[in-house]
């Protein structure tokens, strides 16, 4: 977290937060055991993944289209994969350990060329 850690007599009463929306600054992506990998070629832009994602981690571009995954916040719950209606699915889970050091493009090939 980028903000200053305050002393006990400096924190806001009752754990209240006066600058709403600051959960963005808390990156929960490190909690992930598995990550969703997205295949833009088979994606039909139904936006089910965006609707169901509990962490607002489906990225949407200026045209309102699904454009990827926010890996800084995605906790890897897999709900997007469960909801994806295409056959075969356009989202698939991959062990985080197997994703280390690989580019998103490489991962897509690895997952979706099988």
């Amino acid at each position: 977290m980028s903000e200053k850690l305050l002393n006990w007599d400096e924190v806001l009463i009752g754990g209240a937060i006066k600058d709403p929306g600051n959960s963005k600054s808390y990156e929960t992506g490190s909690w992930r055991v598995e990550r969703p990998v997205w295949n833009p070629e088979s994606c039909i832009q139904c936006m089910f993944c965006w609707v169901y994602c509990p962490d607002s981690s489906i990225l949407v571009d200026e045209n309102g289209k699904m454009s990827g995954i926010d890996y800084d916040h995605c906790k890897g719950c897999g709900i997007c994969v469960e909801q994806c209606p295409t056959k075969p699915k356009s989202l698939a889970m991959l062990l985080e350990a197997d994703a280390k050091g690989k580019s998103e493009e490489d991962l897509r090939k690895e997952v979706f060329s099988k």
Partner: peptide, 25 residues
Amino acid sequence: KEPVTHGAWAPPDWYFEHKMNQLEG
């Protein structure tokens, strides 16, 4: 006019300070 969050999460690097602040009250 002044949006505020109540009931937020306090991870290990915040909870202790909040509880001692509460104790002072």
